[in-house]
Design a protein around this nucleic acid. Structure first.
Lengths: 208, 208
DNA sequence: AAAAAGTTTGACCAAACGGTAAAAATATTT
DNA sequence: AAATATTTTTACCGTTTGGTCAAACTTTTT
């Protein structure tokens, strides 16, 4: 009884890799089995269907992301330091997991309902997130919609990594090192760009 | 001879819709045939393989995008007006084609080589694009890396539309109208955000 | 050590898929 | 109108894919 730990973990790790790289549609149960060094039947023994295996992997992934978001909401940290911390953390994570952004964008489009159950289970709560942020922005004199603030930063961090092949080819002529150096340089330049923009919102009258 | 026009166009339109929504892997020849109101064999009569059909559709798409990019590079238009024009044009296009960003991000990851042949054929030339832009930015006193300038704007325009299901659910609690209104409001707010940021770059010393 | 429970394997299946071949229908040329 | 070329349909094929089943092997319980 209860010796299943090793095998199940090998499967989970293999499935995570294949799913993230190929997506639900592109992933093959055979490939996952091979990568885990086991039989395809054994895969169905542990996770009866592909759908169930996928749901399991995705749910774990979302939980990890939810936890990380939570950690970013500590009080007593200035807006600038939050921006800096967020940008650095996520660029590092995404550089190590190049397929993650596309994977999430994809699956969330392919099957929204199933995905959002995962979000709900991970207790990702936007109101707990936006309300304090809005207060802090106002307290530090930045009169910007907190949604714009968050979404603009998210965009500038994630998009260049999600669109890696495009940038790498079109902007950097296939020079992988130049691309990676550029992405790393964005740790500074995004913070700079955001803080310059925020400076402009200091001068604005309070709106509605 | 040469009556093939109608059928071929019906196929192209159906294929475009299915490919953009489901991607190359998710698309089914049968679904394309059904949507075009024809037989599956007839589909293979016009475009022998799925790969060929996909290449044809993708190539047309890239060409249209390349043309639009070209139009945005006219001289004699201020940076602010270029930002404004670009943001408005692309938000409108992407609102009408919700699956386009994810589709391109996806296919470019799935099969880069084939895709970049398409880019090359569409004569998308980054150097012709970045050099004049850098000059104009400097001429107007904005000491910012033109790559940051372009990529940040691209990010802020495309990402919230590529991640529509996520934003719609997490930020707007499934309220589609609230989401769409917000995206439309970004036509102004992105320009504002960018111009505020650019203001900061005016004060910077010229860097290498 | 026998029985029972859990794990792993190999052989196999039905459905879905991309694709083909030849007949049938339609249009074009002579 | 007969012959020719083109377009469309019908029926089918080989592979791939997710999934099953019973047998074999291993571990745990009695």
């Amino acid at each position: 009884m209860e010796k299943e730990l090793l095998t199940e973990e090998k499967i989970a790790e293999a499935a995570r890799e294949v799913f993230i790289e190929k997506g639900m549609n592109g992933a093959r149960m055979q490939e996952i089995a091979d990568k885990a060094g086991i039989n395809k039947s054994l895969l169905h023994y542990y996770f009866r269907t592909k759908e169930k295996l996928f749901a399991f992997i995705f749910s774990k992934l979302i939980h990890r992301i939810g936890d990380r978001l939570e950690n970013l909401m500590q009080e007593g940290v200035s807006i600038e330091d939050k921006v800096k911390g967020y940008v650095e953390l996520y660029i590092d994570i995404l550089l190590k997991n190049p397929f993650l952004p596309n994977f999430i964008l994809n699956e969330v489009t392919r099957n929204p309902d199933a995905i959002f159950e995962g979000f709900a289970a991970a207790k990702i709560n936007p109101q707990k997130f936006f309300a304090p942020l809005e207060n802090q922005l106002k307290a530090e004199g930045y009169n910007i919609d907190p949604r714009d603030f968050v979404i603009n930063i998210l965009s500038m961090v994630i998009f260049p990594l999600a669109g890696r092949p495009i940038l790498e080819h079109i902007v950097f002529n296939g020079d992988k090192k130049a691309y990676k150096d550029y992405i790393l340089s964005r740790k500074k330049s995004i913070v700079e760009f955001v803080m310059f923009a925020l400076e402009g919102y200091k001068k604005l009258e309070v709106r509605d």
